[in-house]
Lab assay of single mutants.
Amino acid sequence: HEITLHINGRRVKLRFRDEKAAEILKEAAKKGLDEEELKKLAEELWR
């Protein structure tokens, strides 16, 4: 699955395995994680 989040006016595509991962990524984006941090988090969730 993929999700596209808008971060600092940019579109960031993240891959994720399940809905739980999608929710975690959305929450992290709301908390203000930047693009690099979100990509790292997405990679961690993928494993």
Results as ranks from 00 to 15, higher is better:
25 L>F: 08
33 L>W: 14
11 R>A: 15
28 A>S: 07
23 E>D: 11
6 H>S: 10
41 L>E: 01
2 E>A: 05
11 R>Y: 15
12 V>N: 00
2 E>K: 05
32 G>L: 06
39 K>I: 14
32 G>H: 05
26 K>M: 14
35 E>M: 09
26 K>T: 11
7 I>Y: 03
17 R>Q: 06
37 E>M: 13
41 L>W: 04
6 H>E: 14
21 A>Y: 05
29 A>S: 07
15 R>A: 03
36 E>K: 12
17 R>T: 05
22 A>R: 15
4 T>K: 03
2 E>L: 11
4 T>L: 08
18 D>S: 12
35 E>K: 05
12 V>K: 01
14 L>C: 03
1 H>I: 12
24 I>H: 06
9 G>D: 04
47 R>N: 14
30 K>E: 12
29 A>Q: 06
28 A>R: 04
7 I>T: 05
19 E>D: 11
47 R>T: 13
35 E>Q: 06
26 K>E: 06
35 E>G: 08
14 L>Q: 00
8 N>P: 02
25 L>E: 00
21 A>F: 05
32 G>I: 05
3 I>V: 07
37 E>V: 08
47 R>I: 14
3 I>H: 02
44 E>A: 12
4 T>D: 07
26 K>A: 07
6 H>D: 14
8 N>M: 06
43 E>A: 09
43 E>M: 08
27 E>H: 09
7 I>L: 08
44 E>P: 00
5 L>F: 09
5 L>N: 00
32 G>T: 04
35 E>T: 09
35 E>Y: 11
46 W>G: 02
4 T>F: 08
11 R>T: 15
29 A>E: 04
13 K>H: 11
33 L>T: 07
33 L>F: 14
4 T>S: 07
41 L>Y: 04
6 H>L: 15
23 E>H: 13
3 I>W: 02
11 R>D: 14
5 L>R: 01
34 D>N: 14
1 H>R: 10
21 A>H: 15
12 V>D: 00
7 I>C: 04
17 R>P: 05
18 D>A: 04
12 V>M: 05
29 A>N: 05
17 R>V: 07
38 L>A: 02
21 A>E: 05
11 R>K: 14
11 R>M: 15
32 G>D: 04
7 I>K: 02
14 L>K: 00
38 L>P: 00
42 A>N: 04
3 I>G: 02
5 L>G: 00
4 T>P: 01
18 D>C: 05
13 K>C: 10
23 E>P: 03
46 W>D: 03
25 L>Q: 00
36 E>H: 14
45 L>G: 01
14 L>H: 01
26 K>P: 00
7 I>R: 02
21 A>G: 10
17 R>G: 03
46 W>S: 02
46 W>V: 02
30 K>S: 13
43 E>W: 10
31 K>Q: 13
5 L>K: 00
24 I>A: 10
2 E>Y: 15
43 E>H: 07
34 D>H: 10
25 L>D: 00
40 K>H: 11
39 K>L: 14
37 E>D: 12
13 K>S: 09
38 L>N: 00
5 L>S: 01
17 R>N: 07
32 G>W: 04
31 K>A: 14
41 L>S: 01
22 A>P: 05
15 R>I: 06
43 E>N: 09
31 K>F: 12
33 L>C: 07
28 A>M: 09
10 R>V: 12
13 K>E: 05
22 A>L: 15
37 E>S: 15
32 G>N: 06
36 E>W: 13
3 I>C: 04
44 E>T: 11
34 D>M: 10
44 E>L: 14
4 T>V: 14
34 D>T: 14
38 L>E: 00
46 W>Q: 02
5 L>Y: 02
42 A>S: 07
31 K>E: 13
11 R>G: 10
2 E>I: 14
7 I>W: 03
42 A>T: 03
32 G>K: 04
18 D>P: 01
44 E>I: 12
45 L>W: 03
42 A>C: 05
27 E>R: 10
46 W>H: 02
31 K>H: 14
14 L>A: 01
14 L>F: 08
22 A>V: 10
40 K>M: 13
9 G>L: 01
7 I>H: 03
38 L>F: 03
20 K>Q: 11
3 I>R: 02
8 N>T: 03
22 A>D: 02
34 D>E: 11
42 A>L: 04
32 G>M: 07
16 F>V: 15
17 R>E: 03
21 A>N: 07
16 F>R: 03
13 K>V: 15
41 L>I: 08
1 H>C: 09
24 I>W: 05
36 E>A: 11
9 G>N: 05
5 L>V: 10
23 E>Q: 12
4 T>R: 04
23 E>V: 11
10 R>E: 05
39 K>F: 13
11 R>S: 15
24 I>S: 06
2 E>R: 05
20 K>I: 09
16 F>T: 13
21 A>D: 15
19 E>H: 14
33 L>R: 06
30 K>L: 13
18 D>Y: 06
46 W>L: 04
14 L>T: 01
10 R>P: 00
1 H>S: 10
36 E>G: 11
29 A>T: 05
